[in-house]
Design a binder for these strands. Structure first.
Lengths: 339, 339
DNA sequence: GGCTCACTGTACAACGTTGCAGGCAGCGAC
DNA sequence: GTCGCTGCCTGCAACGTTGTACAGTGAGCC
């Protein structure tokens, strides 16, 4: 049985409240008393019961992070950054996996488990713009990702349209004209796929390069296998292309794998650009040119904004904010070695 | 302000305890009463306060998982499996990153945050056999990994020696005789590197193949970049080899990258075997032959064993157990396409 | 009629902590 | 001498829940 304030108070011969005062650095305590209490604490190996403290204070010192799955490298790296940012501010992170499933995302929002934490960071894949109002919850929520805009909560995300436009412009500038897309979502307007496709089309239009529907491959999931499968389909379709813009790095890596199986040379025959700047994209063969969406900045900002709400610094008065991280293009071998 | 039992009781015109009884499915309640209470619950949108419940019950419904970092794919996949296993049993998972640093691992063991969860699953990299006794804590702990054996807690791990021996035997069976090792740790006996090296040497010995120290590359960290660097060093050293056994997949992928940069053909010139069976090893080019250490089985078992301790099923009486997951060799292209 | 027993519901205390109000001693000012 | 202040410490109540003890009601049985 763990020691309680009561045990310490008894041993030190003071009241329970005095022990509490010592622990909480209440100023008016005689040095002598403080030492007695500290000795008792040390002797009993007393540690405050956080659950009881939480019950009194209403704060838990933890935040929840809901994301599709950690097996997806992007989310693993995001979780890493979030945990680091949270720890820097003395918070722990509880992780929930939703599989990107709308029903499970809603469940996470409504789960009584939310009471174990002070707020929720949710990276949604299943929710859509129509679900925006469901984000309104009796606790602080910060939304990540690009499924919902102008919702009732703070929102931290990346510049999808601009970044995708920059990626396509980058390929166009290197003389590529037939750019295949992997990872599109049929009919999607909002969402990573929809926004990135829009950026792509904007770049084509600005350069007066015709858009060809045959170059677009849809795949709901963005795992490596989906990238490989899409590329095999593309090759089987016989459509001609000299570049691939995959909507994330895992798709790109799967696609590169399929390209090379088919004996196609990267970047000589086909240039490849990904999105996410995963660690592994630096070590693929060839290394992958990709869009760095500012993952650490997103994590850092999201945690800061959530804590602002939790601590009431940004009271309900402050309207929900939309914050965009800065992106950059990381140039590597898959588009031709630079310099 | 969230509704409490008190509010519900008031609205339903019953005592607070009756509401509690309804919620906890206490059997002797009149249908009529139950309905009244349920209506009040629905009207107020009442959700039980988990913190208060935890304080009463001493249980939190969460477990902690401490691991080096989620950016390492192996740990991300492990965390995924642990979260899934925990969820299946109604538990949530709080993640702490230690960076594999001994001091931070000790901090995790002693942190008052442990009180936010019912037990700890710790995958240590920094702790060593001498630290075994420090695992003795006033809450349930299950150790993962291979830094400490016969410690005071339950321990779930993989068959490192046997798996590594099998990997080397596999290469030997395919006619490889000069097997380079990447990821060794100088002088280590216990620990993934030490054990895997032992398995490797056992296989060599059994086959009467001489052990050559020049083929061993040490690297403390097992990131992709370390694999690439080690391989470049190996190539620069001029030592002759026809196979590589990397002590994890990320090292192997980095090494393959460096091999291919040097124009060496895999598996024709050099066969490569990794360890971990990461998802990405299936999509590298060539795909990577690897040891599947039974990650899901480890996660599943670890969660089960921890919950057994938490629920007191396996009371202190039961001595700490050492549990080993079954491994298998996953044969892919990096050692020559099978069949 | 009095007994037991099964139902149905209530009151109270407790989990370990902290906010609040207040007590008491000592001291300087009037 | 007393008033008011500061410094130090204490007791009580409360956070929201659940376990224990118990009270009342009605049915069934001797």
């Amino acid at each position: 049985m763990a020691a309680t304030l009561h045990d310490v108070a008894h041993l030190a011969g003071v009241s329970i409240k005095t022990v509490s005062n010592v622990i909480n650095d209440y100023p008016h305590i005689r040095v002598q008393t403080r030492e007695k209490v500290e000795a008792a604490i040390a002797e009993l190996g007393y540690r405050p019961n956080l659950t009881a403290r939480n019950l009194r204070s209403g704060r838990t010192g933890a935040i929840s992070l809901a994301l599709p799955e950690l097996s997806l490298s992007y989310f693993a790296e995001l979780a890493d950054s979030v945990i680091v940012a949270a720890e820097r501010r003395g918070m722990t992170v509880l992780i929930e996996q939703t599989g990107g499933d709308r029903a499970r995302e809603l469940e996470v929002l409504r789960s009584p488990r939310r009471q174990l934490t002070d707020g929720l960071l949710i990276s949604a894949l299943g929710l859509g713009q129509d679900d925006a109002l469901l984000l309104e919850q009796p606790y602080p929520v910060v939304l990540l990702g690009e499924r919902i805009f102008d919702g009732p909560t703070d929102h931290v995300t990346m510049r999808n349209v601009e970044a995708a436009r920059a990626a396509t412009e980058y390929l166009l500038a290197r003389g590529r004209r037939r750019i295949a897309i992997i990872g599109a979502h049929e009919g999607e307007v909002i969402g990573s796929a929809g926004l990135r496709l829009r950026g792509h089309r904007e770049a084509l239009e600005a350069a007066a390069v015709p858009f060809d529907q045959d170059l677009i491959r849809c795949t709901a999931l963005w795992h490596r296998s989906n990238g490989a499968t899409s590329m095999r389909e593309l090759l089987a379709s016989g459509v001609r292309f000299d570049a691939v813009f995959a909507f994330n790095d895992t798709l790109a890596l799967g696609a590169m794998r399929a390209l090379q199986e088919a004996g196609i040379r990267i970047p000589y025959d086909v240039a490849v650009v990904g999105f996410d700047n995963l660690d592994e994209s630096l070590y693929s063969l060839p290394s992958l040119t990709t869009v760095d969406p500012g993952r650490e900045e997103i994590a850092e900002t999201a945690v800061r904004v959530l804590l602002d709400r939790i601590e009431g610094k940004a009271d309900p008065v402050v309207p929900p904010r939309e914050i965009f991280a800065e992106f950059s293009i990381v140039e590597r071998e898959s588009t031709g070695v630079p310099g």
